[in-house]
Amino acid sequence: MAPRAGFVSLKGFYMPVIVQGLLTIVIGVGGCIGYFYLSNLLLDKVIFPAKGENAGRNINRANQIRPWLFLFPAIFALGLYLVYPVVGSFWRSLYGRSPSDWVGFDNYVQLAASNEFQQAFFNNLLWVIVVPAMATFLGLLVAQLTDKLSWGNIAKSLIFMPMAISFVGASLIWKFVYANDADIGLINAIRASLGFGNPIDVMQIPFWNNFFLMVILIWIQTGFAMVILSAALRGIPEETIEAAILDGANPWQLFFRIKVPQIMGTIVVVWTTITILVLKVFDIVYTMTGGNFGTEILPSYMMDFMFRDDGRATAVAFIIMIVVLPVMIWNIVQARKEMR
């Protein structure tokens, strides 16, 4: 293909998509503003006008309805894209490959019996244990180490950077570490320089390859944990730390007995946030191994069935939902506690 051809086709074919995009922005934004403006206008001027003999009552009535005008688009979208799917997915998971083929809980039964599913479930368990623990631990470590450092903000910014990178991009980046070639992969280069002759493919080492994949997500999430924990550490009253120094605490005791207990709430929040993420991320496994070599996890396992067997795919998705459920409930309880 000639280098310029892409450019030409870009103009010939792509402008409409961009235009379409811009149009959507205009229609979407304009529609939103128009909706909010006109619906309020309608409410105040036509349905319950704030004049005439019932002005006072009308204002009150309008104010009772207005919140729902403000909320309607959000409730509609949330209901459609998040609430309905919980029910819809469950319902669909009771059918087989064809949406008209009622199978009851067969999908779940078959999943439970499948080796691959058990493998994916077990791997996911490993991920849920290892990734949040390591990311939180490293985040806390970096947050503490950089706390009083003159160049701490630069260091934090650099460790935070992977947050901006897509899981796909991150996977590619790590291919340059894991590649099965001493001239490309760092790990094999280090092995070669230590005198090991033949390169190994770390993605194919049974069991341990899971951990090499987790490293990628830990690499991304440590920055998140660090930013939040760093703010929490800063929030600890300086005087309690000075009091502990006067009380004779050494740096170790200061950290574990004074600082960590004071930010325990934040540590839990960070931990659960990363746990939830681990249950959603399929990109890394998909890009690095495609789920081969015993590295399948639930989200990537689900994608194996996507477009092929919707019944099975929704069953896997619903199992993920059930795993997340305790965290969801805990979150809601916490949120309600705060509001009081």
């Binding site: 894209y81 919980v86 997915s89 669909r92 795919a313 929704t314 939902m321 997340v324 965290v327 979150n331």
Partner: peptide, 15 residues
């Protein structure tokens, strides 16, 4: 708050 943690996967097929 509850919907914050609903796994996206759930929405794929029905939507």
């Amino acid at each position: 708050v509850g919907l914050l943690v609903v796994p996206l996967q759930l929405a794929l097929v029905p939507m």
